[in-house]
């Protein structure tokens, strides 16, 4: 079976052609970097996405701090992850890359700060 996918890794949005047989990816074409191949493989087995959202922060310039998962987490866990993240409150200062929630929902992926925020 041949599947047509759009790679979501970057705004280039490469159009991928994936050959799948018995749940195994045989070949990927149309990608312009190795990320495209990885994306095609995971998309055909269990789609995964980077999750970006915000958490409450105290003592900073804004009321919320943007956060991002260090790697993709399964797409089918994204709503559950949002519920888990909703309760998190942090205090300034925070540095970009600081771990906000380690091993999010047992995925092995950390949720980290997407920017620094000083204490004001």
């Amino acid at each position: 079976m041949v599947k047509e996918l759009v790679c979501v890794n970057c705004p280039l949005g490469c159009r991928l052609t994936v050959e799948v047989e018995n749940d195994q990816v045989i070949s990927v074409s149309g990608n312009s970097c190795p990320r495209g191949e990885e994306y095609a493989k995971s998309e055909c087995i269990r789609p995964a996405r980077i999750l970006t959202t915000t958490v409450r922060i105290e003592g900073a310039i804004h009321r919320v701090l943007p956060v991002i998962t260090e790697r993709e987490i399964p797409l089918d866990m994204v709503m559950e992850a949002m519920d888990a993240v909703r309760g998190i409150h942090v205090k300034a200062p925070v540095k970009v890359g600081d771990v906000i929630a380690a091993d999010l929902l047992g995925t092995g992926v950390n949720l980290v700060a997407a920017r620094s925020m000083d204490r004001v």
Partner: peptide, 20 residues
């Protein structure tokens, strides 16, 4: 705050605030 920034400039996938 979404990701997808910086693949050309930094060869990494960053969020908007991290790119800034």
């Amino acid at each position: 705050i979404h990701n997808g920034f910086g693949l050309h400039t930094f060869k990494e996938q960053l969020s908007g605030p991290a790119y800034a």
